[in-house]
Write a protein that binds this DNA or RNA. Structure first.
Lengths: 339, 339
DNA sequence: TGACAACAGGAAAGCGGTTTCCTATAATAA
DNA sequence: TTATTATAGGAAACCGCTTTCCTGTTGTCA
């Protein structure tokens, strides 16, 4: 049987207002009554109903987290970071997996909408018109991860994808590679994949190499897909000497494909990834990549979000965090020292 | 500004009871009024406040999911399966990461307790006394994944860990291996790790080999830890010819360690894992393992839980799903055909 | 000792829905 | 045509907690 605040009040011989005050320290209560109430609460193991509390307060203590795919280690790591802060601040997290599906994204957003959660952490490949409408019309705090969105009044956290991709491409070029292929994500338009692609393109151009469509592979976020794409690619472009995969999962698919084609990594073809998911250092060969501070991004995003939930005016709410190039076995790092 | 049911009622010229009836089809309403109400709802884009609804209904539409670590691909896959069903049934999922920490586990359970969520999907390495007390005293539906618990009135879903481990060990033994090492998880006592360990032990004994403590490695769920453990192990036990890692992450750590010691997998040492996480087939070499129907377990667990939330009496509520031995490159499968 | 401020704590009004209860009206039977 | 039964729909209670509002007490100062 459930115990309510009324029951506690009855047993302690006070009004429920007093019980509420004792529990929330919202107004002074005489020591004697205070103790009496506390004792009854203790005895009955009373826990106030969070739903009722939420109704009265107009907040639920819930943060919505919308991500494409939890089985992608990048997002798992992000969620881990988010969770740490959420927990620490006494919130809970409602996890929503969109599987990169725009309809699901919108339906989840609507589901979480107004009043249900106190704020949303949102990750998407592409910010559409509908998203904008949604976020504009809804007054609840939102933080974007992996995407800045200047025309929307949301906080955000990201790295400089363009520059990182530029750096890693240059890393290949500097050491003599000329036929550098790229594996890019499907979406165009202001996505991080787009930024990475342009970083690659411009780095190549800086070395006088025009964009060569036959060196551009398109894949998605599934290893399997990249694997197939790369195997097909290798039949047509056997002369490639380096591959820049725009995510570590893509790099894994690529390396596996190369090895299954009997091509040695890194000796015949070098591969670099992006993200630095935990597996990147334990894959064989371990993967050269761009380290994003993934969990840190999750933590920081959540801190910002919660401050905004609490009505704080956060000044620095659109962050670009530093990245780092990590050289591992999938590129011949011995050559690096010569640079 | 927020629109409430009162506002809708006012504009439609009916009572809020009628609006509620229209929205829930809980009682017939004259066509004319029905249409009028629907139109106002449409116009205003009215969405009933789920918290208020929850208060009245005494349910939140939330399912708590307690897992050790979302960055472990096994759990990520599980959560994916859970999510699919949760979403389909119009529930939402509150994700809780315990990081294998017992205190966090209990504090999360308490947090989710009574009335906050409608049910809990729970995964833990070890079911303690405190857990039992908690689940006994709380009347909310609970489903365990990866653990059956006969003395507790909870539904559960699992595979036969003992037999699977027995099979995979026998798979090594049949093909002539005698020095088969095992990497086991830390906890003892009724855990799936315990079952797997015993399956190994008994399979060895069936071949007349007594348990040899020097062939037993202890590690945890982190790749890094296993990596270090195996490297250390190899200095002392270079004669090992096969390693049974009781999880795929352990297998990855082990293979990486072997390769870094200059030992060829599978030619010098064979390795098998457990779980069949997605990475198992894309690692290099791909990993022989026991396939658990991970996402399926998540889905089924959730279906059972939701039926129990709805007050159904589920008959078959303690399931043991089939597993499957998957041979890949980390063992010399050519030998298999000869068996 | 009287006037006024400070304070503790109860009653009641929300928060935003759902549902019971009851009445007025329409439909059916006699 | 009248008595009886269905039915639609409004008023109000309720879910369980918070908070405002107000009153009765105590404390302070002149």
């Amino acid at each position: 049987m459930k115990i309510t605040i009324d029951e506690v009040a009855r047993r302690a011989g006070v009004s429920k207002a007093t019980v509420s005050r004792v529990m929330n320290n919202s107004k002074p209560v005489k020591q004697e009554k205070y103790d009496r109430v506390m004792q009854v609460i203790e005895e009955l193991g009373f826990i106030p109903n969070p739903v009722a509390r939420g109704l009265a307060h107009q907040k639920t203590g819930l943060v919505g987290v919308v991500i494409p795919d939890i089985t992608n280690p990048f997002f798992a790591e992000l969620v881990k970071g988010i969770e740490e802060v959420v927990r620490d601040k006494n919130y809970n997290m409602v996890l929503c997996n969109t599987f990169h599906n725009f309809e699901k994204e919108m339906s989840y957003l609507k589901m979480l909408r107004e009043k249900y959660v106190d704020g949303i952490i949102f990750m998407t490949a592409k910010v559409t018109h509908e998203h904008r409408d949604f976020f504009r019309s809804s007054q609840l705090p939102v933080t974007f991860i992996n995407r800045k969105c200047e025309d929307l009044n949301v906080s955000s956290i990201d790295i400089d994808n363009y520059q990182a991709a530029h750096d890693i491409t240059t890393f290949f070029l500097k050491r003599g590679h000329r036929r550098v292929a790229i594996i890019r994500a499907p979406l165009t338009d202001k996505t991080s994949g787009y930024e990475r692609f342009h970083g690659y393109r411009d780095a190549m151009q800086a070395y006088g190499i025009e964009l060569n469509a036959s060196l551009v592979m398109r894949s998605n976020f599934k290893i399997e897909n990249t694997y197939k794409t790369v195997r097909r690619f290798l039949r047509e472009e056997p002369a490639v000497t380096a591959i820049f995969a725009t995510s570590d999962l893509m790099a894994i698919g690529a390396i596996k494909a190369l090895q299954d084609e009997g091509i040695q990594v890194p000796h015949q073809v070098e591969v670099a990834g992006f993200d630095d998911i935990p597996m990147a250092s334990y894959y064989h060969p371990s993967i050269t990549t761009v380290r994003q501070p993934i969990a840190e991004m999750g933590r920081t995003a959540t801190k910002i979000l919660i401050r905004e939930i609490n009505g704080e005016k956060v000044k620095n709410r659109n962050l670009i965090l530093p990245y780092q190039l990590i050289c591992r076995e999938s590129t011949l790092t011995s050559k690096v020292s010569g640079e």
